[in-house]
């Protein structure tokens, strides 16, 4: 009996080599393990084995069955692996993939977000105000005399009731101080409006970002530290930044800020990028009058303010040649900012 089982084992070992496809493997299974298979029939012979031989023969039977089943499983796995390999045969990994549609944040959104992120890290929070403003918030409270050139209907959009479209986001400074006690440290990104014909460098509606920091003993050194860091955050940590004295009605001393950049294929040059200054005491006085208290007493608090044009920032950053590209929203233009 044992010899018979060994013979079956040997036969199977030879036969499995020839089972090269599913049908042959099935044939193999039937021949050895099927109901009338060689092993099944041999197992039936257990009845006739003597009691003392039974454990040894039983063990042998199990061994052989396990081996034969193993043959089938191994060959089956091999055949599957061959099929799998076949299925992937001829797959050209260099064919183009199926890409998800990838759109882009508008360059102005991106440049604004960079500025906001940098300033938030320095402890600024966001503030907002209406775009349709009063003359008080846009001009009077910002120390802009009634006969200032900006305050006429040629340069500023007015409404029939005397309201106007804010000419700068600086009006948010006023609104914030009216409702918030110092210290304040805010940034206000948003739209501003000027009655300019639209051309390659002008828009009638454009984006600005305003900043204001008021507390006790805010100094010119704070202004420098904050703005140098801001522009280095946007344009790179080694960007040279310089301040030029200038004049604005609502700050004193006032400065324009230049950064030194190297436009593609050109010599490095200084590019004007923002205006800033220490808040003029007359602005604080106006706020005190408006609030009816003296928490912004110019003898007690000082502060700085700054404003920058976001279109200009974006144009400089990406070398955008015409400001109108920023309002046309041509997909071919926008998609260039997809990975930016």
């Amino acid at each position: 009996m044992i010899a018979q089982l060994d013979a079956i084992h040997q036969d199977a070992q030879a036969a499995i080599e020839d089972a090269r496809d599913d049908a042959a493997l099935e044939e193999f299974r039937i021949r050895f393990l099927g109901k009338k298979g060689a092993l099944t029939q041999a197992a039936a012979g257990m009845r006739n084995v003597s009691k003392e031989d039974k454990p040894a023969v039983g063990q042998k039977l199990n061994e052989v069955r396990k081996a034969l089943t193993g043959f089938v499983e191994a060959r089956s796995a091999e055949l599957l692996a061959l099929k799998d390999a076949d299925a992937a045969k001829g797959v050209d990994v260099t064919l183009p993939g199926r890409r998800p549609q990838q759109a882009a944040l508008h360059p102005l959104t991106q440049v604004m977000h960079r500025g906001i992120s940098a300033l938030r890290q320095m402890g600024f929070t966001l503030a907002a105000g209406p775009e349709v403003e009063t003359e008080f918030h846009c001009f009077d409270a910002l120390n802009t005399p009634e006969d200032h050139p900006a305050r006429n209907e040629k340069d500023t959009f007015y409404f029939a009731d005397g309201h106007l479209l804010r000419t700068h986001t600086s009006s948010v400074q006023v609104r914030t101080m009216e409702t918030t006690k110092p210290p304040v440290r805010i940034i206000a990104p948003g739209s501003a409006y000027r009655r300019d014909e639209i051309d390659s460098t002008h828009l009638s509606v454009f984006s600005q970002m305003e900043g204001l920091y008021v507390a006790e003993d805010v100094s010119l050194g704070d202004l420098k530290g904050t703005l140098e860091r801001l522009f280095r955050a946007i344009f790179g940590p080694k960007t040279p930044v310089r301040f030029r004295p200038h004049f604005f009605p609502f700050t004193e001393p006032s400065f324009e800020i230049d950064i030194k950049l190297q436009p593609k294929g050109q010599e490095p040059r200084w590019i004007e990028i923002a205006g800033c200054g220490m808040v003029d005491p007359s602005v604080f006085s106006q706020i005190c009058e408006s609030r009816g208290d003296d928490v912004y007493d110019p003898d007690k608090v000082t502060g700085f303010a700054f404003g920058l044009g976001l279109e200009r920032l974006a144009m400089i950053m990406w070398g955008i040649p015409d400001i109108r590209l920023l309002i046309e929203n041509d997909q071919r233009f926008l998609r260039q900012f997809a990975s930016a």
């Binding site: 882009a104 775009e131 009638s204 309002i327 926008l334």
Partner: peptide, 15 residues
């Protein structure tokens, strides 16, 4: 989220 879903972020003139 809109950008990730393939929608382009636009800015147009408010007038």
């Amino acid at each position: 989220r809109l950008v990730d879903l393939g929608y382009d972020d636009c800015l147009t003139i408010k007038l």
